[in-house]
Amino acid sequence: MAKRDYYEVLGIDKNAGPDEIKKAYRKLALKYHPDKNPGDPSAEDRFKEAAEAYEVLSNPEKKQRYDQFGHQGLGGNGGFGGGGMNMDDIFSQFGDIFGGGGFDSFFGGGGRSSRRTKKGTNLRVKLKLNLSELANGVEKKIKVKRHMIADGVTFKNCSTCQGSGQVKKVVNTMLGQMVSASTCPSCEGSGQVVDKRPPNADARGLVVKEEIIPINIPAGVADGMQLSLSGKGNEIPGGVPGDLLILVEEIPDDVLVRDGNNVVYDLYLSFVDVALGASLEVPTIDGKVKIKIEPGTQAGKILRLKGKGIKELNGYGRGDQLIHVNVWTPKEVTREEREKLESLRDSENFKPNPGKSEKSIFDKVKEFF
């Protein structure tokens, strides 16, 4: 099922500011929270949908990519992008939205919201890709250094929180006794502390290891996109690993230029070639191909190679290659060449005569867009 527009999910317009985005999400999170709607799968789906929308729109970089590319700009399927949040990811947002106490102040600290799985920190790397790799997709291997739980480490329940990850305090108020809960300072919410560890591990039982991680880059990614590989960030005791975030950088091509899903190539021909016609090779993303220049081709004409552009991200379509025809004029000619050209100067066939039916360059460009 296609995802709904994130602005539609939160009920806001595209010009909404950070405060308005946060307010809209807070309202929906309270309305569809699973503890308020037990046994209602549709409410839980709306709860997750709102959280995913907020996770993207509250992040300036992700919001910019979403505004420019839509859901595809976030990576879509295959473990990449901003989608696919689990309940732990969602509850990790509540410190920002509900002032650090999460839903405890609204639901009494009970239920699903009282215990959250901690998540390790994310790792960020830059990956440079050439135009062919961006267009067709590629498998790459990235070398990263990440914190990992050392071999031989054992854990035990935290004595401060008895393994719950939270410490609770009863406060007497005029309305009666109220229970407040906060993250355990001893185990930082994991519920566990190190029991035994090898000499090379730190106090948390972690070591830094270098790992080579294979990743499949989907066809159609663009410069500036950020891909996410789940679970390949830093590990954390009693929690889940963070993610590996890959920022895509495009290596400029020497002759081809990307324009959306199309590829543009400037072809320079002599006036002899455009007058008499020619058969020649031009570069494409997938190698050289032969094209035919018809006699009488005018400067500014745009030729189209169907399907020789960029594959659509997570789709089945593919852009085209547009060839801009330019006529190259020699700066120097020999005496013999000058005499030949002078003999053609007064020929009717060599005098500009576009005629009424000839289209302007602007009309020709419009035909393609």
Rank of each mutant, 00 (worst) to 15 (best):
M1T: 12
R4I: 08
D5P: 03
Y7K: 06
Y7R: 06
Y7C: 09
L10S: 09
P18F: 01
E20I: 09
K22L: 15
K23Y: 11
L28C: 08
A29N: 04
L30P: 03
K31Y: 12
Y32C: 02
G39F: 05
R46M: 11
K48I: 15
E49S: 13
A50C: 05
A51M: 12
S58W: 09
P60N: 08
K62V: 08
F69D: 15
H71I: 15
N77P: 03
G79S: 08
G82L: 06
G84Y: 02
D88Q: 10
I90P: 08
I90S: 05
S92R: 11
Q93R: 11
G101S: 10
G102Q: 04
G102M: 01
F103L: 03
G111K: 00
R112V: 12
R116A: 05
R116V: 13
G120E: 09
N122M: 01
R124V: 05
K126C: 01
K126Q: 08
K128R: 09
L129D: 00
S132M: 12
K140M: 00
A150D: 02
V153F: 00
V153H: 02
V153D: 06
K156V: 12
C158D: 10
Q162F: 06
G165Q: 09
Q166L: 02
M174C: 03
Q177A: 13
A181I: 12
S182Q: 13
G189F: 02
G189R: 03
V193A: 07
V193T: 14
V194L: 05
P198I: 04
P199W: 01
V208G: 01
V208R: 06
E210N: 06
I212E: 14
I213G: 02
I213M: 03
D223N: 12
D223I: 02
G224H: 05
I236L: 10
P241V: 08
P241N: 13
D243Q: 06
D243M: 03
L244T: 01
L245T: 02
L245D: 04
V248D: 02
D253G: 06
D253Y: 02
R258Q: 11
V264G: 07
Y265S: 10
Y265R: 06
Y265H: 13
S270R: 05
F271V: 07
L276R: 13
L280I: 14
T284Q: 08
I285R: 02
D286Y: 02
K290N: 13
K290E: 14
K292A: 12
P295G: 15
T297Y: 12
T297M: 07
Q298E: 15
I302D: 13
R304T: 13
K306C: 11
K306L: 12
K306Y: 11
G307K: 06
E312F: 10
G315Y: 10
Y316M: 14
G317T: 11
R318C: 09
K331E: 14
E336A: 15
E337A: 14
R338C: 05
S343H: 12
L344I: 04
E348M: 14
E348D: 15
F350K: 07
K356C: 13
S357R: 09
E358A: 15
E358Q: 15
S360K: 10
S360R: 07
I361R: 14
D363T: 07
E367L: 07
F368T: 04
